[in-house]
Amino acid sequence: MVKFEYFEPNSLEEACALLKEHGEDARLIAGGTALIIMMRQRLLNPRVVISLADIPDFDFIRFDAKDGLRIGAGARHRDIELAPVVQEHYPLLYETFRKVAQPRIRNMGTIGGNLVQGDPLTDPGASLIALDAKITLRNAGGHRVIPVENFFVDYYQTDLQPGEILTEIHVPPSLPGLAWAHIKFLPRSQEDFATVGVALTMRLNGDRCQDIRLAFNSVAPIIMRAKRAEEILRRQKVDDDRVGKMAEVASTEVDPMDDNRGSAEYKRELVRVLVRRAVKQALERSATGKQGAKQASAPA
């Protein structure tokens, strides 16, 4: 691993200033799970490493019924998984984060670090897209807020601009009765990256789908939202035929590649199967959760 200069700023302002000063030579480190591997393999050789560990309140997890959920970029996967507000109001996030890697890595890796890495095999992005989450990106001059779904640009590439730090994830207020599903398909070891990851949310009105967000990981160069597939079901009656059609469209919308976890063709096939299963799970959840069912059928 290359030798580097190490800074531990005490504020975001200071971190932004350091980032501006050192430009391309600098890398931020939070949990380190991805960065250290790349540095050990000499894929990244930064001359300056800026730690975000000493920035106060960078790992907050706050919930407000009106505002929704705000998570500091430095929050670790494990903390998000265990946060009572997440478990209570965002079961989809709980379900997603508890499946990320294993507890030791969840103890280390931060949500901000995960997103800026842009690794399409990781789980959180798809669920955040399904929940219409937004992220705040800050630089020395100010900040911008963009939807997570626009953040992923290409394989290991995000919209993070030089000098920017991802500081916060904002998830809109949870809709009671929101139908949801998360499937991490692991055909090899249960201890693996997903061969296909599906995150789904649906707002239901009786048997109609008012709104839907469907996102995937591990089936494209980016963590992606399947908008064409969503359109098949949006404002439509949810029946086997339409769900099947949506699954079919989703399988053409994804852009998987062959790897140790399966061929591209197989992953498309799985998308067809898993989308149907996700809808089924979401409907079942919505039907069994009494309050959820009641609220979901209320006029939007």
């Binding site: 380190g32 250290i36 591997i37 730690s51 030791r104 280390m108």
Partner: peptide, 26 residues
Amino acid sequence: SIGVCGACSVIVGGRLVSSCLTLAVA
């Protein structure tokens, strides 16, 4: 050396971590 196998597990500040991916200075 990539945080998968757990042979390097240690507890730091009450958290289980992979020491192969942790900077000592941190």
